[in-house]
């Protein structure tokens, strides 16, 4: 049974990559939107752009993973294809985890494009080990966050609308463009309740020397968020099939 589930996770993620990555909602929210933001910040002030790179990579991860989830989950909920997956000898949590992995891989590809671009054209030198240490739990956390919101609704546009609320709140509160430490104390507390804060923090440490133990803490907190998001997502999806 465990083998059935691992096989299911692998092939569902593979199929989602092949089927949905070039769908318009994935392109517009997962690729065009982050790229536009990055270009806007670069053109506004090229000299201080390097300071914004960790935040923009974090934002890319947030948007690309959640946009992919809206596509891989809500397209299939609407068309009934998700039922087709549940008819196979694969458990429901594994089907959902396959979807989360599919979204995480999309986010990984986008984050890699942005990171490699910054390395090649701006000459920044991140610690790649730390990038992976923060990046992977971030991808899983945001992909499962996307999954959680997407299983609550049926249509792709509903999912994107619902996702935009926390996305934009996080962009402004989690240190993407404005440091959390410079915000009023109350907002700092709110910021620390959001996963993007830990991704931005971890990525900032990856791009600066002497990250230390704090980066492990960021990674652990992000893994905690992944668990917090995935369990209710499984529960909500299960209820749809009762």
């Amino acid at each position: 049974m465990r083998r059935d589930n691992w096989r299911g996770i692998y092939w569902i993620a593979w199929k989602d990559m092949k089927t949905y990555y070039l769908k318009p909602p994935a392109i517009s929210w997962g690729i065009i939107f982050p790229v536009t933001w990055i270009l806007a910040f670069y053109l506004r002030n090229p000299q201080s752009f390097q300071e914004l790179i960790p935040g923009l990579i974090a934002m890319t991860i947030l948007f690309s993973t959640t946009a992919a989830e809206a596509v891989v989950i809500n397209f299939e909920l609407r068309l009934g294809s998700l039922e087709r997956l549940l008819l196979a000898p694969v458990s429901l949590p594994s089907v959902l985890f396959g979807k989360v992995v599919g979204g995480a891989i999309f986010g990984l590809l986008m984050a890699m494009v942005v990171t490699v671009g910054c390395v090649l054209f701006l000459g920044v030198r991140p610690d790649f080990l730390y990038l992976i240490l923060v990046g992977l739990p971030s991808l899983l956390a945001f992909s499962s966050f996307g999954a959680l919101l997407c299983v609550m609704v049926r249509e792709v546009f509903e999912a994107q609308t619902l996702l935009n609320i926390p996305r934009f709140i996080m962009i402004f509160l989690c240190g993407v463009v404005y440091p959390v430490s410079a915000m009023p104390r109350g907002l700092q507390y709110v910021a620390h309740l959001m996963p993007l804060t830990y991704t931005v923090d971890g990525l900032q440490h990856s791009f600066s020397a002497g990250a230390g133990a704090i980066i492990f803490l960021d990674a652990l907190v992000l893994l905690g968020f992944f668990i917090i998001f995935i369990f209710p997502a499984v529960h909500i999806l299960s209820r749809k099939f009762q």
């Binding site: 049974m1 199929k15 089927t19 009934g80 087709r84 008819l87 000898p89 694969v90 458990s91």
Partner: peptide, 21 residues
């Protein structure tokens, strides 16, 4: 259920394979 699913084929009322494949 998972054991059963190895032995059964199901054709839902809706033809729900993947348009993109």
């Amino acid at each position: 259920l998972v054991e059963i699913k190895h032995h059964i084929g199901v054709v839902p009322e809706l033809s729900n394979l993947y348009d993109e494949l």
